[in-house]
């Protein structure tokens, strides 16, 4: 161990030290309000005009809430189902993860239906690779080309075999 005390020269060293500071945050500012449970004077309640999924571990919506991306489609059906289970349950979280993945496909379908072909390369930020990480980009392109190549070869072999036996 170093035993020089140079560190005491660091700007602000020890300025917030407070050996009496116990209990520390987050239990520091205990007010006793906990024993009144959920009986605080609530803020005015936001008017609900989109579907909000509510955790079943609370009696009602929070006074304000976000209204981004309400549940839709198949992912929405799964999300609604997930909210029948508490935050304590895999029944809640695993379906939500599944819904997230399905939602990605729905997003692509939505794009196409709006006449937008998602530019997946651009969305993955590969331009940055081109600038700063050419090696990795080349590797990614090569791996994808190789995978594609193998798939094409397999498919064409399958076809040949089919025609051979068929």
């Amino acid at each position: 161990m170093e035993d020089n005390k140079d560190y005491q020269q660091i700007s602000g060293w020890g300025i917030d030290a407070d050996p009496e500071d116990e209990p520390n945050y987050p239990i520091k500012k205990y007010t006793g309000d906990d024993h009144n449970r959920s009986n605080w004077e609530r803020p005015q309640l936001q008017v609900q005009d989109v579907e909000i999924l509510k955790s079943n571990e609370r009696p009602s919506l929070s006074a304000v809430f976000g209204t981004a991306s309400p549940p839709t489609g198949l992912s929405g059906v799964i999300r609604r189902h997930a909210f029948k289970y508490s935050e304590n349950s895999y029944g809640h979280w695993l379906p939500l993860l599944l819904a997230d993945r399905i939602n990605v496909v729905e997003g692509i379908i939505e794009d196409l239906s709006e006449g937008v072909i998602p530019n997946i390369f651009a969305e993955r930020g590969w331009k940055a690779d081109f600038k700063y990480n050419k090696g990795a980009l080349a590797k990614k392109v090569l791996i994808r080309a190789a995978v594609l190549g193998v798939i094409v070869i397999c498919l064409s072999k399958k076809k040949k075999r089919k025609s051979f036996f068929g």
Binding site: S38, R42, P43, I52, L53, K54, S55, E57, R58, L61, S62, A63, V64, F65, G66, F83, E87
Partner: peptide
């Protein structure tokens, strides 16, 4: 507790 309807373990 008044900023997140969808989970009780985390605030908004």
């Amino acid at each position: 507790h008044e900023s997140n309807s969808q989970a009780t373990a985390v605030g908004g």
